[in-house]
Amino acid sequence: MRYQGNAIAPTDVFDFDALTLKEEELEITAATFEYLKEARKVRYHRVRSGDTLSHIGRRYGVSVTKLCRLNGISRNSVLRIGQRLRIT
């Protein structure tokens, strides 16, 4: 379920055991979308000696293509020690 493009857990609206709505009206507050704060955080990785794009990607579960796109680099870019790479 979505409200203005943001997901709402269906278990907040439906009682699947009884196959009914929990309430006739659902009050949507900031607390309903609290999970988005954590999901939208921008995270960075500081390059250390021996790091490669594929190693960093595996560590964080991000593809090399996405790492390159987020950081404006190519697959063949040389990583510098101390360089910050955006992960999310």
Rank of each mutant, 00 (worst) to 15 (best):
L79H: 00
I8C: 10
R58H: 12
M1D: 11
Y35I: 06
A31W: 03
R80G: 06
T29P: 01
S49A: 14
T65I: 01
L19Y: 08
G5V: 11
V62M: 02
G5N: 13
N76R: 07
S49D: 13
I81L: 12
Y3H: 14
L36Q: 11
D12E: 15
I87F: 09
I8R: 09
G57F: 01
G5W: 13
R84T: 10
K41N: 05
K37M: 10
T88I: 01
E34G: 08
D15R: 07
D12N: 14
L79E: 08
I28N: 09
T20K: 15
R69F: 02
V78D: 06
R2Q: 14
S54N: 11
G5F: 10
K22D: 06
V62D: 02
R80M: 12
G82I: 09
F33L: 07
T11E: 15
V13R: 07
R58C: 01
S49E: 15
L36K: 14
V47A: 06
L19F: 07
K22G: 02
I8K: 12
V78N: 03
V13Q: 02
R43M: 12
C68Q: 05
V13L: 15
A7P: 09
I87Q: 12
V78Q: 13
T11H: 10
G61S: 07
E38A: 14
R46H: 03
K41V: 08
R59E: 11
I8M: 15
G72M: 02
E24I: 03
D15Q: 03
G72I: 00
N6G: 05
V64C: 05
R80Q: 15
A18G: 02
T52L: 06
T11N: 13
E24L: 12
L70G: 04
D17E: 14
I8Q: 11
N71H: 06
P10L: 08
M1T: 13
I8Y: 09
I73T: 04
K22N: 06
R59A: 12
L67T: 04
L79V: 10
K37T: 12
L70H: 03
R2N: 15
K22L: 00
Q4C: 13
T32D: 09
K22C: 01
S63V: 04
K37C: 03
R80D: 07
R86V: 09
R86D: 00
R58S: 14
E23N: 14
A18V: 00
F14N: 08
R2I: 10
S74V: 01
A30D: 13
V62T: 03
T11F: 08
G5S: 14
E25R: 11
K66Q: 14
D51M: 13
L85I: 11
G61L: 03
R80N: 11
E27G: 05
G61W: 03
T29I: 04
I87K: 09
R75M: 00
T52A: 09
R80F: 09
Q4S: 14
D17G: 13
V47H: 07
E38L: 09
R69C: 00
V78M: 03
P10H: 10
D12T: 10
R84V: 07
I28V: 15
R80P: 01
F33T: 03
G57N: 04
L85Q: 08
F16D: 05
L19D: 14
G82F: 07
